[in-house]
Simulated assay, not measured.
Amino acid sequence: MTLYDDQTIQDLEAKAKTIRCHAIKMIYAAKSGHPGGSLSAADLITALFFKIMKHDPNNPHWEERDKFVLSKGHAAPSYYAALAECGYFPIDELLTLRKVDSNLQGHPCRQKTRGVEVSTGSLGQGLSMANGLALAAKLDRSGSRIYCICGDGELQEGQNWEAAMLAAQYKLDNLTLFIDRNKLQIDGPTEQVMSLEPLADKWLAFGWNLIEINGHDMRQILEACDKAKETTGKPTVIIANTIKGKGVSFMEGAIGFHGKAPNEDEYKIALKELGDCA
Protein backbone atom coordinates (compact mmCIF):
# COMPACT_ATOMS: atom_id res chain seq x y z
CA MET A 1 0.00 0.00 0.00
CA THR A 2 1.28 3.45 -0.92
CA LEU A 3 2.40 5.75 1.89
CA TYR A 4 1.03 9.23 1.23
CA ASP A 5 3.04 12.19 2.46
CA ASP A 6 1.43 15.14 4.19
CA GLN A 7 1.94 17.43 1.19
CA THR A 8 -0.02 15.08 -1.07
CA ILE A 9 -2.88 15.02 1.42
CA GLN A 10 -2.86 18.80 1.81
CA ASP A 11 -2.85 19.32 -1.97
CA LEU A 12 -5.83 17.02 -2.38
CA GLU A 13 -7.69 18.70 0.47
CA ALA A 14 -7.11 22.06 -1.21
CA LYS A 15 -8.36 20.64 -4.50
CA ALA A 16 -11.49 19.30 -2.79
CA LYS A 17 -12.17 22.79 -1.46
CA THR A 18 -11.86 24.13 -5.02
CA ILE A 19 -14.32 21.48 -6.22
CA ARG A 20 -16.79 22.55 -3.51
CA CYS A 21 -16.38 26.21 -4.49
CA HIS A 22 -17.12 25.41 -8.12
CA ALA A 23 -20.17 23.38 -7.14
CA ILE A 24 -21.64 26.23 -5.08
CA LYS A 25 -20.97 28.76 -7.85
CA MET A 26 -22.52 26.51 -10.49
CA ILE A 27 -25.66 25.81 -8.51
CA TYR A 28 -26.07 29.47 -7.56
CA ALA A 29 -25.67 30.55 -11.21
CA ALA A 30 -28.20 27.96 -12.35
CA LYS A 31 -30.59 28.82 -9.50
CA SER A 32 -31.18 25.09 -9.16
CA GLY A 33 -29.28 21.91 -8.36
CA HIS A 34 -28.27 19.65 -5.51
CA PRO A 35 -25.65 21.17 -3.20
CA GLY A 36 -25.98 18.71 -0.29
CA GLY A 37 -24.96 15.56 -2.12
CA SER A 38 -22.46 17.37 -4.32
CA LEU A 39 -20.56 18.58 -1.26
CA SER A 40 -20.72 15.24 0.58
CA ALA A 41 -19.15 13.44 -2.40
CA ALA A 42 -16.50 16.08 -3.20
CA ASP A 43 -13.64 14.43 -1.29
CA LEU A 44 -14.31 11.03 -2.88
CA ILE A 45 -14.43 12.52 -6.39
CA THR A 46 -11.27 14.54 -5.75
CA ALA A 47 -9.30 11.52 -4.57
CA LEU A 48 -10.35 9.49 -7.60
CA PHE A 49 -9.70 12.06 -10.31
CA PHE A 50 -6.56 13.64 -8.92
CA LYS A 51 -4.75 10.65 -7.45
CA ILE A 52 -6.29 7.20 -7.84
CA MET A 53 -7.62 6.79 -11.38
CA LYS A 54 -5.63 6.39 -14.59
CA HIS A 55 -7.11 8.80 -17.11
CA ASP A 56 -5.97 11.27 -19.73
CA PRO A 57 -7.91 14.48 -20.50
CA ASN A 58 -6.04 14.73 -23.80
CA ASN A 59 -7.16 11.23 -24.77
CA PRO A 60 -10.54 10.61 -23.08
CA HIS A 61 -11.02 7.29 -24.89
CA TRP A 62 -7.63 5.83 -23.98
CA GLU A 63 -8.33 2.10 -23.82
CA GLU A 64 -6.45 1.47 -20.59
CA ARG A 65 -8.14 4.26 -18.65
CA ASP A 66 -9.96 3.61 -15.41
CA LYS A 67 -13.66 4.44 -15.58
CA PHE A 68 -15.99 6.28 -13.25
CA VAL A 69 -19.76 6.00 -12.80
CA LEU A 70 -21.61 8.60 -10.73
CA SER A 71 -24.74 6.65 -9.91
CA LYS A 72 -26.07 9.54 -7.80
CA GLY A 73 -26.20 11.70 -10.88
CA HIS A 74 -27.64 14.71 -9.06
CA ALA A 75 -24.15 15.27 -7.60
CA ALA A 76 -23.02 16.23 -11.11
CA PRO A 77 -21.67 19.68 -10.07
CA SER A 78 -18.74 18.14 -8.18
CA TYR A 79 -18.18 15.66 -11.04
CA TYR A 80 -18.15 18.43 -13.65
CA ALA A 81 -15.87 20.56 -11.48
CA ALA A 82 -13.35 17.71 -11.28
CA LEU A 83 -13.47 17.14 -15.04
CA ALA A 84 -12.89 20.85 -15.69
CA GLU A 85 -10.05 21.08 -13.19
CA CYS A 86 -8.45 18.04 -14.87
CA GLY A 87 -8.68 19.76 -18.27
CA TYR A 88 -11.50 17.92 -20.05
CA PHE A 89 -13.16 21.24 -20.86
CA PRO A 90 -12.66 24.93 -19.89
CA ILE A 91 -13.39 25.91 -16.30
CA ASP A 92 -15.45 28.88 -17.55
CA GLU A 93 -17.95 26.39 -18.95
CA LEU A 94 -18.95 25.32 -15.43
CA LEU A 95 -21.23 28.33 -15.04
CA THR A 96 -23.40 27.07 -17.89
CA LEU A 97 -24.76 24.28 -15.66
CA ARG A 98 -28.39 23.41 -16.47
CA LYS A 99 -28.74 26.09 -19.14
CA VAL A 100 -30.46 25.33 -22.45
CA ASP A 101 -27.99 23.78 -24.92
CA SER A 102 -25.25 23.57 -22.28
CA ASN A 103 -22.92 20.58 -22.33
CA LEU A 104 -23.43 20.39 -18.56
CA GLN A 105 -26.91 19.12 -17.93
CA GLY A 106 -28.46 18.60 -14.50
CA HIS A 107 -27.38 14.96 -14.60
CA PRO A 108 -24.34 13.51 -16.41
CA CYS A 109 -24.82 12.85 -20.13
CA ARG A 110 -22.11 11.05 -22.06
CA GLN A 111 -23.35 12.43 -25.37
CA LYS A 112 -22.78 15.99 -24.21
CA THR A 113 -19.98 16.13 -21.64
CA ARG A 114 -16.38 15.29 -22.47
CA GLY A 115 -15.02 12.81 -19.94
CA VAL A 116 -18.37 11.39 -18.81
CA GLU A 117 -18.40 7.61 -19.28
CA VAL A 118 -22.11 6.85 -18.80
CA SER A 119 -25.31 8.86 -18.50
CA THR A 120 -26.80 8.63 -15.02
CA GLY A 121 -29.54 10.16 -12.94
CA SER A 122 -32.17 7.46 -12.71
CA LEU A 123 -31.23 6.30 -9.24
CA GLY A 124 -30.26 2.71 -8.54
CA GLN A 125 -28.82 1.94 -11.97
CA GLY A 126 -25.18 3.03 -11.70
CA LEU A 127 -23.84 -0.12 -10.06
CA SER A 128 -25.37 -2.27 -12.80
CA MET A 129 -23.61 -0.17 -15.44
CA ALA A 130 -20.37 -0.32 -13.48
CA ASN A 131 -20.72 -4.09 -13.40
CA GLY A 132 -20.96 -4.14 -17.18
CA LEU A 133 -17.83 -2.04 -17.54
CA ALA A 134 -15.95 -4.21 -15.04
CA LEU A 135 -17.03 -7.46 -16.70
CA ALA A 136 -16.05 -6.11 -20.13
CA ALA A 137 -12.62 -5.16 -18.78
CA LYS A 138 -12.20 -8.69 -17.45
CA LEU A 139 -13.17 -10.23 -20.79
CA ASP A 140 -10.78 -7.87 -22.60
CA ARG A 141 -8.00 -8.74 -20.13
CA SER A 142 -7.66 -5.01 -19.55
CA GLY A 143 -5.98 -3.49 -16.53
CA SER A 144 -8.75 -0.90 -16.23
CA ARG A 145 -10.44 -0.48 -12.88
CA ILE A 146 -14.01 0.71 -12.46
CA TYR A 147 -15.12 3.11 -9.72
CA CYS A 148 -18.73 3.90 -8.85
CA ILE A 149 -20.27 6.27 -6.30
CA CYS A 150 -23.79 5.50 -5.07
CA GLY A 151 -25.90 7.52 -2.71
CA ASP A 152 -27.11 5.68 0.36
CA GLY A 153 -30.75 6.52 -0.33
CA GLU A 154 -30.63 4.89 -3.74
CA LEU A 155 -29.65 1.59 -2.12
CA GLN A 156 -33.35 1.28 -1.34
CA GLU A 157 -33.73 0.38 -5.03
CA GLY A 158 -33.81 -3.40 -5.51
CA GLN A 159 -31.71 -3.33 -8.67
CA ASN A 160 -28.65 -2.53 -6.56
CA TRP A 161 -28.89 -5.85 -4.76
CA GLU A 162 -29.24 -7.79 -7.99
CA ALA A 163 -26.09 -5.98 -9.15
CA ALA A 164 -24.38 -6.82 -5.86
CA MET A 165 -25.06 -10.51 -6.46
CA LEU A 166 -23.73 -10.37 -10.01
CA ALA A 167 -20.50 -8.59 -9.05
CA ALA A 168 -19.74 -11.22 -6.43
CA GLN A 169 -20.76 -14.08 -8.74
CA TYR A 170 -18.31 -12.94 -11.42
CA LYS A 171 -15.56 -12.04 -8.95
CA LEU A 172 -15.28 -8.47 -10.22
CA ASP A 173 -12.22 -7.52 -8.18
CA ASN A 174 -11.58 -4.65 -10.61
CA LEU A 175 -14.71 -2.91 -9.28
CA THR A 176 -14.79 -0.52 -6.33
CA LEU A 177 -18.08 0.91 -5.10
CA PHE A 178 -18.21 3.94 -2.82
CA ILE A 179 -21.39 4.50 -0.83
CA ASP A 180 -21.79 8.18 0.05
CA ARG A 181 -23.29 7.45 3.47
CA ASN A 182 -24.57 10.90 4.42
CA LYS A 183 -27.74 9.36 5.93
CA LEU A 184 -30.09 11.88 4.29
CA GLN A 185 -32.27 11.67 1.19
CA ILE A 186 -34.85 13.96 -0.35
CA ASP A 187 -37.66 12.77 1.96
CA GLY A 188 -35.63 12.78 5.19
CA PRO A 189 -33.17 10.56 7.09
CA THR A 190 -32.57 7.24 5.34
CA GLU A 191 -33.24 5.31 8.52
CA GLN A 192 -36.73 6.80 8.74
CA VAL A 193 -37.61 6.54 5.05
CA MET A 194 -36.37 2.95 4.59
CA SER A 195 -33.75 1.72 7.00
CA LEU A 196 -30.52 0.44 5.46
CA GLU A 197 -28.88 -0.85 8.61
CA PRO A 198 -27.11 -3.15 9.23
CA LEU A 199 -25.58 -1.89 5.97
CA ALA A 200 -22.10 -3.35 6.39
CA ASP A 201 -23.48 -6.79 7.21
CA LYS A 202 -25.59 -6.75 4.05
CA TRP A 203 -22.56 -6.27 1.79
CA LEU A 204 -20.58 -8.91 3.63
CA ALA A 205 -23.49 -11.32 3.21
CA PHE A 206 -23.50 -10.60 -0.52
CA GLY A 207 -19.84 -11.64 -0.73
CA TRP A 208 -18.11 -8.29 -1.07
CA ASN A 209 -14.87 -7.08 0.45
CA LEU A 210 -15.94 -4.37 2.90
CA ILE A 211 -14.07 -1.25 4.02
CA GLU A 212 -15.61 1.50 6.16
CA ILE A 213 -14.06 4.96 6.37
CA ASN A 214 -14.56 8.62 7.15
CA GLY A 215 -15.47 9.90 3.69
CA HIS A 216 -13.95 13.30 4.41
CA ASP A 217 -10.54 11.97 5.51
CA MET A 218 -8.39 12.09 2.39
CA ARG A 219 -5.79 9.67 3.71
CA GLN A 220 -8.45 7.11 4.59
CA ILE A 221 -9.98 7.43 1.12
CA LEU A 222 -6.65 6.85 -0.63
CA GLU A 223 -5.68 3.94 1.59
CA ALA A 224 -9.09 2.30 1.10
CA CYS A 225 -8.61 2.50 -2.68
CA ASP A 226 -5.19 0.87 -2.31
CA LYS A 227 -6.67 -1.94 -0.24
CA ALA A 228 -9.33 -2.46 -2.90
CA LYS A 229 -6.63 -2.81 -5.56
CA GLU A 230 -4.92 -5.47 -3.45
CA THR A 231 -8.12 -7.51 -3.03
CA THR A 232 -8.55 -10.49 -5.35
CA GLY A 233 -11.58 -12.62 -6.15
CA LYS A 234 -14.29 -10.22 -4.99
CA PRO A 235 -15.49 -6.65 -5.54
CA THR A 236 -14.90 -4.01 -2.89
CA VAL A 237 -17.45 -1.70 -1.31
CA ILE A 238 -16.24 1.31 0.65
CA ILE A 239 -18.85 2.73 3.00
CA ALA A 240 -17.80 6.37 3.23
CA ASN A 241 -19.43 8.05 6.21
CA THR A 242 -20.04 11.62 5.13
CA ILE A 243 -21.95 14.77 6.02
CA LYS A 244 -24.50 16.14 3.60
CA GLY A 245 -23.50 19.68 2.65
CA LYS A 246 -19.95 19.21 4.01
CA GLY A 247 -17.93 22.43 4.07
CA VAL A 248 -20.78 24.93 4.38
CA SER A 249 -22.06 25.24 7.94
CA PHE A 250 -25.73 25.96 7.23
CA MET A 251 -25.89 23.17 4.64
CA GLU A 252 -24.28 20.48 6.78
CA GLY A 253 -26.88 17.92 7.78
CA ALA A 254 -29.68 20.11 6.37
CA ILE A 255 -32.21 18.12 4.38
CA GLY A 256 -33.54 21.36 2.88
CA PHE A 257 -30.39 21.71 0.80
CA HIS A 258 -30.76 18.34 -0.85
CA GLY A 259 -32.02 20.04 -3.98
CA LYS A 260 -32.15 23.80 -3.35
CA ALA A 261 -29.82 26.50 -4.58
CA PRO A 262 -28.54 29.09 -2.07
CA ASN A 263 -29.89 32.60 -2.22
CA GLU A 264 -27.52 35.56 -2.61
CA ASP A 265 -26.77 35.97 1.10
CA GLU A 266 -26.29 32.22 1.56
CA TYR A 267 -24.06 32.13 -1.50
CA LYS A 268 -21.75 34.80 -0.10
CA ILE A 269 -21.55 33.05 3.27
CA ALA A 270 -20.81 29.70 1.63
CA LEU A 271 -17.94 31.08 -0.43
CA LYS A 272 -16.52 32.84 2.61
CA GLU A 273 -16.61 29.64 4.65
CA LEU A 274 -14.90 27.77 1.84
CA GLY A 275 -12.09 30.30 1.86
CA ASP A 276 -13.20 33.09 -0.47
CA CYS A 277 -12.27 30.86 -3.38
CA ALA A 278 -11.54 32.61 -6.66
Rank of each mutant, 00 (worst) to 15 (best):
N174C: 03
K202Q: 04
Q159S: 15
K229L: 14
L196V: 01
L166P: 00
A167K: 11
D187T: 06
A205F: 02
L175D: 12
F206L: 12
D201W: 00
T176S: 13
T176M: 03
G215F: 07
D187R: 10
R219D: 09
N160R: 04
M165R: 14
I213W: 06
G215D: 08
P198G: 02
I211S: 04
A168Q: 14
D180M: 00
D180E: 03
L210M: 01
M165W: 11
P198S: 05
Q169F: 11
L175M: 08
W203C: 05
L196E: 01
D180V: 01
E191M: 07
A163K: 13
I213Y: 03
K183N: 08
R181K: 09
A167C: 12
I179W: 02
E162D: 08
Y170N: 15
L155A: 09
L204T: 13
I186Q: 14
E197T: 04
M165P: 04
K183H: 12
G158K: 08
D201Y: 00
I221C: 09
E162I: 11
M194K: 08
K183G: 01
K202G: 00
E223M: 14
I221N: 12
N209Y: 03
R181P: 00
K229D: 14
V193C: 02
E197M: 01
F178A: 03
L222W: 11
D217E: 15
E157T: 12
A168K: 15
A163F: 06
I211D: 05
G158N: 09
L175K: 06
L166V: 15
D187W: 09
Q159N: 15
M165A: 10
L166H: 12
I179L: 00
A224D: 02
L222A: 13
A224Y: 07
Q169N: 14
D180N: 15
F206N: 07
W203E: 01
P198A: 06
G188D: 10
G207Y: 11
A224F: 01
D217Q: 07
L172G: 11
Q156K: 14
M194Y: 03
W208Q: 03
G188A: 05
Q185L: 02
Y170T: 10
L175H: 05
E223A: 07
N182E: 04
Q156A: 15
I179S: 00
D180Y: 00
L177Y: 02
I213T: 05
G207L: 08
D173K: 10
L222Y: 11
L184R: 12
N214H: 13
Q192P: 01
A228Q: 14
E191Q: 10
R219V: 06
A164I: 08
C225N: 13
T190N: 07
D226E: 15
E212F: 01
K171V: 06
E162A: 07
K202L: 02
I179K: 07
D180C: 00
